[in-house]
Amino acid sequence: MSIVDRLIPPRGLRVLVSAGASGIGAAIAGAFAEAGAKVHVCDVSEAALSQFHEQYPDSVTTLADVSDADHVTAVFGAQRERFDGLDVLVNNAGIAGPTGGIDAVGEQEWQRTIDVNLTAQYRFAHHAVPMLKASSSANMICLSSVAGRLGYAWRTPYAATKWAIIGLVKSLACELGPDDIRVNALLPGIVEGPRMDGVIRARAEQLELEEPEMRKRYIEKISLKRMVTAEDVALMALFLCSSAARNITGQAISVDGNVEYL
């Protein structure tokens, strides 16, 4: 195998992506499918699952709310039934959470953000690890955020969960290293798309600014002066599952054009 070939993940990997039918999750799942992987995505949106399956008809799709423990258990039942194992878990599911001062954030909003962004990552890892231990190409990739390395005023529930994911990843890398399971976090920055449009809109309202001005301020925070794409994040996920990355674990890898502050 040439050094260039080592940059491509091996074909036939069994890959599970949570919230994998739209956005960054779909970009990652689609990239693995195009690289010859056996892809399973779960998502809370039936319409998004249908659209993903239409684009990738060989994929397996499961309707699931990751904040529901029984739904997560069912996802892994489907994984075992269809693929008899797992090589790559992409712990991707997450929500933006509320925008507002800590005194305005209700406990229900806080708890919902933790349930989806953090507790779901625990649940997927909990079920995945026994299967990953039986794999010869085991990887876990957890999606954090640039808000997992920077403070993020008015978005404390979101930032708290994204920082916690880094702790989860670094701890699991130590715990699972002896089993040759690599665990890394990806930290997307300001990603083009509808979700970011909503974040910018909410932030503009919070600060009483026009939306174009708020968008301009977001771009000014980035050293490269451009947003990243979901495909940029997907390419890094593919690399982490290639043999070229065989000694990369326990890392929090930003894909963000170097966001300087939030």
Rank of each mutant, 00 (worst) to 15 (best):
S2P: 00
V4S: 13
L7A: 07
L7E: 06
I8R: 13
A19N: 10
G23N: 01
I28S: 03
G30T: 10
G30W: 06
A33F: 13
G36H: 13
G36R: 08
H40S: 07
V41M: 07
D43S: 11
S45T: 08
L49V: 02
S59Y: 02
T62P: 00
V66S: 02
V72I: 11
T73K: 12
V75K: 00
F76L: 09
E81C: 02
D84W: 08
D84P: 02
G85T: 07
G85C: 07
G97V: 03
T99H: 08
I102E: 08
D103H: 09
A104D: 14
A104Y: 09
G106S: 13
Q108H: 11
E109A: 15
W110C: 09
I114D: 02
I114P: 01
Q121I: 05
F124W: 03
F124Y: 15
H126C: 02
V129M: 05
P130Q: 12
L132Q: 09
L132K: 07
A134I: 08
S135P: 10
I141G: 04
C142L: 14
C142M: 05
V146R: 02
Y152D: 14
A153H: 10
R155W: 03
R155C: 04
T156N: 14
P157V: 12
P157H: 13
A159D: 08
T161P: 02
T161Q: 06
G167E: 07
K170C: 06
D180W: 08
V183S: 05
N184Y: 10
A185Q: 11
P188W: 10
E192A: 15
P194H: 12
A202Q: 11
A204H: 07
E205T: 14
E208P: 00
L209M: 15
L209G: 05
E211N: 04
E213P: 05
K216N: 14
I219A: 11
E220P: 02
I222E: 06
R226C: 02
A230M: 03
A230K: 01
D232V: 09
L235S: 11
M236F: 04
F239A: 03
A244M: 03
T249V: 07
G250S: 05
D256Q: 06
V259N: 03
E260M: 13
Y261T: 13
